[in-house]
Write a protein that binds this DNA or RNA. Structure first.
Lengths: 228, 228
DNA sequence: GTTTGTATTTTGAATACTCAAAATGAAAAT
DNA sequence: ATTTTCATTTTGAGTATTCAAAATACAAAC
């Protein structure tokens, strides 16, 4: 059985490496995990020995198929729990992340299945992130960061990538929530900012770092069943 | 912050020692915790150093007020979670214990408060055990084991003390659930068995070990001698 | 091609928990 | 009073995780 520490390492390696080809350098992993570099090295060796990752010294890590399977399992637990907390317990979506971070390691598969059913086998969590299926399939849609869009684009918010609750609260208060329709009215390359209009609201200026955290997708297209 | 291991030790010490005066011998604690005796000794020293217990070498342990406070807090989490799983998620009450055993260490106070409200600040868990209040008060009622009752007694089941799910399932299937009315029709000291009738059902024979696990309480205002 | 700089790895040590087995204390049996 | 027995404690060691700081490798700059 993987400890919750191992589960966390595996999860973060997976999340920070959507492009399957590259290795993740250990310095980066150490930053993500808030440990000193040496700790990351030690841990990655252990992961490697237990067959969850492949490790090239001085280059980086990559998950093995077994590692990816575990990562998807943890991610499923995390996102299903988040949605459960929002929908059943009425917790605000901006506060749900740290809670799920703990519970994801404590919940049994049996209980998770019950929650899944109760929620109607949902496909997305409250942040708009896709929930891996029980079989371990993750639907990847074509989303992009808001800053990557052209002026004039009309999109829909798919999710907010930042898990920091301050930013989530800010986003929330301006209507920047998954599902919201959004019109990119203008871009200012020099001023490093973009002007957006959310639903019918007052236009809002966002810096590029904020714009990078907001993932959008074309909203004309037919969509799969939505969470929330 | 107490680790979940510490929380478990404290909880079990508390539960196995309702009579405040006696010390719990470490051999007993070791059995309860499924560790070798030496481990219990080491752990109890640690608890003692952190002010949660008082330890007399060769005699035993007792919780300090701080330890009792923690124990009640853990117990509250455990029992509230059990009730939540039964009521909101429809998990069978006989299967709820091991689940809560894990979740009780992962849930935040904030989330617990939400659950408490959702359930209407309940006083008893699905096994009939009282749920400590947020302030740490535990209502102790006058309950006693079924085998301690006289023939002819009419009682109500308060709770089942055994947490083993096989026994719980057995009890369930015979209507032996908290709240059920019960008539002790006969006792057979030689045969070591008692004959009970649950609600209107067929009379049922129980051995003394089963009878010891079923806690009952006076059903009307009739006063029997109290057990605490 | 040597120096400098930065990322990574190694080493040594700490904390929390556990076990196996030897040592000890105290009560029970003789 | 001495021996036997049993519970408890001590000792030594192992796993999982972490840090601080020294050692090393490699790329970039000179």
């Amino acid at each position: 059985m993987a400890t919750s520490t191992v589960e966390n390492y595996i999860k973060r390696i997976f999340m920070d490496q959507p492009t399957g080809t590259g290795l993740m350098p250990l310095g980066r992993l150490a930053k993500i995990m808030n440990v000193v570099p040496g700790t990351a090295t030690t841990m990655v060796k252990t992961l490697s020995e237990s067959g969850l990752a492949r490790y090239r010294p001085r280059e980086g890590v990559r998950l093995t198929p077994a590692g990816e399977k575990l990562a998807l399992h943890v991610l499923r637990r995390h996102r299903l729990i988040e949605l459960f907390l929002v929908r059943v317990l009425g917790v605000d979506w901006s506060e749900v992340h740290p809670e799920a971070e703990e519970l994801e390691h404590a919940i049994s598969d049996k209980l998770l299945a019950r929650i899944d059913e109760l929620l109607g086998k949902p496909a997305f969590d409250p942040h708009g992130d896709p929930i891996p299926s029980a079989a371990g399939k993750l639907s990847r849609s074509r989303v992009q960061p808001l800053i990557a869009c052209n002026a004039g684009a009309r999109m829909r918010i798919a999710r907010i990538t930042d898990q920091d609750s301050r930013f989530l609260r800010y986003a929330n208060s301006h209507g920047l929530v998954p599902g919201a329709k959004l019109h990119l009215k203008d871009r200012d390359a020099q001023g490093d900012s973009i002007l957006v209009q959310v639903n019918g609201r007052k236009p809002l200026n966002l810096g590029s770092s904020a714009g990078a955290k907001i993932m959008v997708e074309p909203h004309a297209k037919a969509r799969t069943k939505r969470a929330t």
